[in-house]
Simulated scan of single mutants.
Amino acid sequence: MQNTFPTIAFSGIGSVTVTIIHAFYQNQVPFKILCRNPDRFQSLGKTPIRFQGPNGKITSIDLKNHLTLADTESEKFDYILIGCKNQNLKEYLEETKPFLSPKGKWILIQNGIPESNFKSYQNQIIGGVVGWNTQTLSDGLYYQSNVGSLILGEMSGDKPNPIWNQILPPHLPVILTDKLNGFRWHKLAINSIINGLAASKRQSLGELFLNYQSRKEALETLTEIKELIQKLNIKEQVVPGSFPIQKLGGGNGALPNWIRHLILIILGLKYFRIRTSMVQDLDNGRTTEIDFINGEVVKTAKELGLPVPKNEWIVSKVKEQTNKTN
């Protein structure tokens, strides 16, 4: 069986990539981690990483035999998963280009619509939409708080190789799609409130969604994106475990207002203490991805002449917060 696996590498190790690595590790799927700097190579090789899934079980993952220094690697890979922030994506693609086999593909697991910036690589990119939340806790434990799928779709509009159905489940469910854009825009809308709006107020999801005014702002944000998706003629594809923007946003097809508020209250109670990635970036003085989340909405809406004042407000507020922390 092992001989039938494609060759797979990771460039960039963080909460999302560690969740995928955990599934590979459990399923004994071979993979390599392309380390960009020797210090990272040493630290990852010295201490196993600890991962806790939604079932509560903690796994120790020894990466020692999976590490390689990028500047000494000569192998070519069928797939390279890129685990960096959007703002570093171009640099990571250029650095890993020599390691891609002639028919190889990058897998982009960033938030937003990362593929839109790399149209020249249309046949070499698979988009990966992440349907789970994993955080790094203060003791270094990677904690996945909810069961979620990895949704994979070719940038060219095809479904990816079905081998992914064999190498990630049951630890990570997979959906192979030819409707990548529909999933991307759905996830972008969700991120616009749980990341963008939460960061604009520097709040946990509990603080955010248990406040009436913040819920009202969240629904306004989603309504703007719903109108934008309709204007783009994109059919929304709902990430499993999530909720349709067509029903959460206002206008045609919307649920009654009190139900929309109730859904956000339940979300706030369920993930009360969660500080999502953009809030954590502000907490730690890092640059956020706001330009690639609500900023993507603002940019696309401007091209279509559609007003999105709430998303514009979020972008400006997050940038204010960034300036305060830097």
Rank of each mutant, 00 (worst) to 15 (best):
M1I: 10
N3V: 10
F10R: 03
S11I: 15
S15G: 06
Q26F: 06
Q28H: 13
V29W: 12
V29Q: 10
P30S: 08
K32Q: 03
Q42K: 11
S43V: 05
S43E: 03
G45I: 05
G45S: 13
G45W: 05
P48A: 12
I49L: 15
R50H: 15
S60M: 05
I61M: 15
H66S: 09
T68Y: 05
K76Q: 15
F77L: 04
D78M: 04
L81G: 08
N86H: 07
L93G: 00
E95K: 13
T96I: 02
S101Y: 05
P102A: 12
K103F: 01
K105T: 11
W106A: 15
G112F: 15
E115V: 11
N117I: 08
F118D: 06
Y121Q: 13
Y121K: 14
G131T: 09
T134Q: 07
L137S: 04
G140M: 07
Y142S: 14
I151N: 00
L152C: 03
S156L: 07
G157K: 14
K159R: 08
N161Y: 00
Q166F: 09
L172P: 06
P173M: 03
I175W: 04
D178R: 10
K179E: 04
N181Q: 09
F183A: 10
L188G: 02
A189H: 03
N191Y: 09
L197G: 10
R202E: 13
S204R: 12
L205I: 11
L208F: 06
F209S: 03
F209W: 01
L219R: 06
I225S: 08
I225Y: 09
E227I: 01
K231D: 00
I234Q: 09
E236N: 11
I245C: 08
K247A: 14
A254F: 04
L255G: 02
L255W: 12
I259L: 15
L264R: 06
I266S: 05
I266E: 03
F272Q: 12
F272L: 11
I274K: 03
R275D: 05
S277W: 04
M278H: 06
D283L: 15
R286M: 00
E303G: 05
L304P: 00
E312I: 14
W313D: 11
V315L: 13
V315D: 00
S316H: 08
K317C: 03
K317A: 14
N323R: 05
K324W: 04
